[in-house]
Amino acid sequence: MNRSTPTPPTGTDAGLAAALRMAVGRLARRLRAQRPDSSLSLGQGSVLFALARHGKMTPGALADHEKVQPPSMTRIIAALEARGLVRRMRHPDDGRQQLVEITEEGSRLVAADQQRREAWLTRRLAELSQEDKEVLRRATEILDRLSQS
Rank of each mutant, 00 (worst) to 15 (best):
L80C: 13
L85H: 04
R87K: 11
G60H: 07
Q69I: 08
K67E: 07
D94T: 01
A82M: 07
K67I: 05
L85S: 05
M73R: 01
K56L: 08
L62I: 07
P92M: 06
I102M: 09
E104V: 03
D64T: 10
T103Y: 11
R87P: 04
H91S: 15
S72R: 12
R75A: 11
P92Y: 10
P70Q: 08
I77Y: 08
A82C: 05
P59N: 06
R90D: 15
T74P: 01
V100L: 06
D64N: 10
A61T: 10
E101W: 03
A79I: 02
P92G: 04
K67Y: 08
P92L: 06
L62R: 00
I102V: 14
T58R: 10
K67Q: 12
P92K: 04
E104P: 05
D93Y: 11
G60V: 02
A82W: 01
L62Q: 03
R87A: 14
T74Y: 11
E105D: 15
G60F: 07
R96C: 09
E101L: 09
P92V: 01
H91T: 08
K56Y: 11
E105M: 10
A63K: 01
G84E: 14
K56Q: 14
A61G: 09
R87E: 15
L99N: 04
K56H: 11
P70N: 05
L99V: 04
G95H: 14
L80E: 11
M89T: 13
L80Y: 00
A78F: 00
V100I: 09
Q97G: 01
A63P: 02
V68A: 03
P71L: 01
I76P: 01
D94F: 04
R75D: 06
P59I: 02
I76D: 13
E101R: 03
M73W: 02
R83Q: 15
G84Y: 05
L99Q: 09
M73P: 00
L85I: 03
G55E: 08
P92E: 10
R87S: 14
R75V: 01
I76S: 13
G60P: 00
H54E: 09
P59R: 00
H54T: 03
R88W: 02
H54F: 06
G55K: 00
R75K: 14
P71M: 01
R88E: 15
T103K: 05
M73Q: 09
K67T: 09
G95A: 15
V86G: 07
G106R: 00
D94Q: 05
H54W: 04
A78D: 12
P71S: 02
S72P: 00
E81F: 00
A79M: 11
P71Y: 03
H54L: 10
E101A: 09
Q98L: 06
M73F: 06
P92Q: 06
S72V: 09
T58D: 12
A79C: 12
E104Q: 09
I76N: 12
G60W: 07
H65G: 10
P71D: 03
K67D: 07
E101C: 04
K56S: 14
P70S: 07
G95P: 14
G95S: 15
P70T: 02
E66I: 07
T58N: 08
A61P: 00
E105Y: 03
A78C: 04
A78I: 02
T103S: 15
D94K: 04
D93M: 11
G60N: 08
H54M: 03
R87H: 14
L85W: 01
R83Y: 02
D94N: 13
K56P: 12
A61L: 10
G95Y: 04
E66W: 02
R88M: 13
D64L: 10
P70M: 06
G84K: 02
